[in-house]
C-alpha cells in the first residue's frame, strides 16, 4: 500500500518538520485504488518521533516544510522519498503529489490565500 505522510499546521503543510503537532496520513488502497486520509495528533513535536512514525508506519513519501539535514539524510537512507520546503495547503500538496507534479520548494499559495493564521 502506498503511504504518504505530511506534517501539518492547520490546513497548511507545517513550516517545520520538527515542530509539527499533527500529521496527515494519506494512503491508497491497492485493491480499490481509492485514497484515504487520516489526521493524527502527535503528543509532542519531535523530529525523532516523526522519523520513528514514518518508518514504523511504512511511509513511502514524506511531504514537509523545513527539515534538518540530519533527518532528511536519515529518511532518504531509509528509502523514504522526501519532498521538502513545500509551502502551501497540505490538500493541494497531496493533489499535486498524486498528479506527479510536486517538487521540493513548491509554492502552492495563491494570492492572499493563507489558509490559516497560526
Amino acid at each position: 500500500m502506498k503511504k504518504i505522510l505530511i506534517p501539518i499546521h492547520g490546513a497548511e503543510v507545517a513550516p517545520r518538520f520538527d515542530l509539527a503537532t499533527e500529521v496527515a496520513f494519506i494512503s491508497q488502497d491497492p485493491e480499490a485504488g481509492r485514497w484515504s486520509e487520516r489526521i493524527v495528533v502527535v503528543p509532542q513535536p519531535s523530529a525523532e518521533r516523526l522519523c520513528h512514525m514514518i518508518l514504523s508506519e511504512d511511509v513511502k513519501t514524506l511531504v514537509c516544510g523545513a527539515i534538518e539535514e540530519e533527518y532528511y539524510q536519515y529518511l532518504v537512507w531509509k528509502r523514504v522519498t522526501v519532498i521538502d520546503s513545500v509551502m502551501g495547503p497540505w490538500a493541494a500538496a497531496a493533489d499535486r503529489l498524486m498528479a506527479g507534479d510536486l517538487a521540493s520548494g513548491a509554492m502552492l499559495f495563491c494570492r492572499k490565500e493563507s489558509a490559516n493564521g497560526d
Binding site: 497548511e12 523545513a66 502551501g88 499559495f109 492572499k112 493563507s114 497560526d118
Partner: peptide, 11 residues
C-alpha cells in the same frame, strides 16, 4: 509577491 505567509519563508 503578496501571497506567502512569513512563517513559510522564515521557517
Amino acid at each position: 509577491g503578496g501571497c506567502l505567509p512569513c512563517r513559510h519563508l522564515l521557517r
